[in-house]
């Protein structure tokens, strides 16, 4: 695994909101073509980590490199150029509710890649089909479909531009276990077909096991443990053991009970 080049390299990442220190000197390498799941309790900074990488937030200090290029603090056209390599599925899907489904899926193709509306519609309908939605749904609006279907559309939008890197923010949150399984399988299939590098933020261990090659656990603003997904049950790490078994007592308890949820 380590023979592959590093796609995303995080070094000394620090992010605070006022007095609340969320990321504290966090280091993480994600190699090209691998799928990493970052797990951790609510409010430990998983989503903040992801938002710093995609440029929605700017770290207070530290380095974020994508393909060796420093992207922390990039803005404007330079940020847009980097973001053309990315696709992201948001926790709440974040579909544009004023646009029909096909325009949501084809948005990146039209807006950032200059593809015509007619061609984008054809490509979007094909992507919708890949995530299990038929062509008839293309002209419906996000408010007309279920949360599970919205996740599918969000996934179709994320993969529509065939990005090199895919980010998934809590992909199974808010949907039933069966639909969660469906979404996870679609994510695995999409990542493999695209040959993309993937970073998933989740606190759903079943989802992490299905999606990831490696799992990293974030605790007190740092990566407390990282390893192959198959080794997570025998990690010997007390924090990992407490998290995956959902125990109240353990090394995570003090910080969780004393820290308000983010």
């Amino acid at each position: 695994m380590n023979s592959r080049p590093v796609k995303i390299a995080l070094r000394g990442l620090i992010k605070s909101f006022g007095e609340k220190h969320v990321l504290r000197d966090l280091d993480l390498d994600i190699f090209e073509g691998e799928s990493v799941a970052v797990i951790g309790a609510s409010g430990t900074g998983k989503s903040v980590l992801l938002k710093n990488i995609v440029g929605i937030l700017t770290p207070d200090s530290g380095s974020i490199k994508i393909d060796g290029e420093e992207v922390a603090g990039l803005a404007g056209n330079a940020r847009d150029r980097v973001n053309r390599k990315l696709g992201m599925l948001f926790q709440g899907s974040a579909l544009f509710d004023s646009l029909p489904l096909w325009e949501n899926v084809g948005f990146g193709l039209m807006s950032a890649h200059g593809i015509s509306r007619a061609d984008a519609r054809v490509a979007a309908i094909e992507r919708l089909r890949q995530v299990g939605l038929d062509a008839d749904s293309a002209d419906r609006f996000p408010a007309d479909i279920s949360a599970g279907a919205q996740k599918r559309v969000g996934l179709a939008r994320a993969i529509a531009t065939e990005p090199e890197i895919l980010f998934f923010d809590e992909p199974t949150t808010g949907i039933d276990p069966i639909m969660g399984d469906v979404i996870d399988n679609l994510i695995v299939k999409s990542v493999k077909e695209l040959g993309a590098t993937a970073l998933t933020i989740t606190h759903d261990m079943e989802s992490a096991r299905r999606i990831a090659d490696r799992v990293a656990l974030i605790h007190e603003g740092k990566i407390a443990w990282i390893g192959d997904v198959g080794k997570i049950d025998t990690s010997g790490n007390e924090i990992v053991d407490q998290f995956i078994h959902g125990r109240v007592e353990g090394p995570m308890s003090a910080s969780l009970l004393g820290t308000p949820a983010a």
Partner: peptide, 25 residues
């Protein structure tokens, strides 16, 4: 109301990840 809803439902963040400047769009 429209832009505020887009903000709190992360639609504006989604615009950024789709390499689209929210100020321009």
């Amino acid at each position: 109301a429209e832009i505020g809803t887009m903000r709190v439902t992360e639609q504006i963040d989604a615009l950024s990840t789709l390499a689209t400047n929210p100020y321009k769009y």
